[in-house]
């Protein structure tokens, strides 16, 4: 159970009606249950379109017999609401997803839509608000909250419906570093606590580096995928399509250019630092 694929995407393409080039061009990939997947690529590479296909906001082109499966459910017109019960999305703009008049109302929105009785809502809502550390703002109005706080409320609204998958659709890109770090640490905790699968679409290389699996998109195509190790060591490929590389990979590259020999297995910043410190103490 622990290692099955919670998302299976096969031969999926998508074109926007007014455009001739497909936004998504024949993509297939799987996401393991309980894993963290990052999708990176420059603006307009099709990252966000994939998410809208996964929860049925968009419907894939018919050619190539596409199939999308979420938590064992094949996505069709009839199952779309079942799929949406399993996928919670935190969108980019903190203001444009805050539906409720207050924090509590907003967190309850998803529950109201699913017809959860009032007696249960009054139990679930404060719990979800507490999980994101917003209890003292329960009755606050969105106008009095920072962007980061609004995104925390968005996460609470998702936790309330107990989904299997949480998607961050550039959810931290409009926040300051403090807000961004808070959101990422909350999502990390929640992932462990509720055994969630996380998909994060991001430009932030540190955020992408939190993943088990990285997908790289360019012009609607999935150009490479794999562990952070395999993807981020392809420094020149990433640079060619205008993407960042984790800082420690940049240092490795520069040291090696200057003929300093590094072993192949330095796969994280920590390992690089340990190695460099050892190297220095030997001298």
């Amino acid at each position: 159970m622990a290692t099955d694929n919670i998302i299976k995407i096969k031969n999926v393409s998508f074109s926007y009606p007014e455009s001739d080039a497909p936004a998504i061009d024949n993509i297939s990939f799987n996401v393991k249950r309980g894993s963290w997947t990052s999708i990176i690529g420059h603006n307009g590479s099709g990252k966000s379109t994939i998410i809208r296909l996964i929860n049925g906001l968009l419907v894939p082109d018919e050619n190539g017999s596409p199939s999308i499966e979420v938590d064992g459910i094949k996505l069709t017109d009839d199952t779309v609401w079942e799929v949406r019960n399993r996928v919670g999305i935190v969108f980019q703009n903190p203001d444009n997803q805050f539906v409720g008049a207050t924090v509590a109302d907003d967190v309850a929105f998803g529950l109201e839509n699913r017809g959860i009785p009032h007696s249960e809502m009054v139990k679930i809502v404060p719990e979800a608000i507490k999980a994101v550390g917003m209890s003292e703002y329960t009755n606050a109005e969105p106008a009095n909250l920072s962007g980061g706080q609004k995104q925390r409320v968005a996460i609470a609204g998702i936790l309330a419906i107990k989904p299997k998958i949480i998607v961050l659709d550039e959810a931290t890109s409009m926040l300051d570093p403090e807000g961004r770090n808070q959101i990422l640490s909350i999502v990390k905790d929640m992932k462990e606590k509720y055994d969630l699968t996380v998909i994060s679409i991001t430009h932030d290389i540190d955020e992408a580096n939190m993943a088990d699996q990285v997908l790289v998109m360019n012009d609607g195509k999935l150009i490479t995928q794999g562990s952070t190790k395999t993807v981020f060591s392809q420094v020149s490929l990433l640079k060619n399509i205008g993407l960042d590389v984790p800082f420690f990979e940049q240092i490795k590259e520069k040291l090696q250019q200057d003929a300093i020999k590094l072993p192949d297995n330095l796969d994280s910043e920590k390992e690089l630092i340990n190695y460099l410190c050892q190297l220095n103490s030997k001298m």
Binding site: H42, N43, E170, S173, M174, H203, I205, G242, L243
Partner: peptide, 8 residues
Amino acid sequence: AAGLDPEA
């Protein structure tokens, strides 16, 4: 540059 990709 908020929200722009790294190259931009």
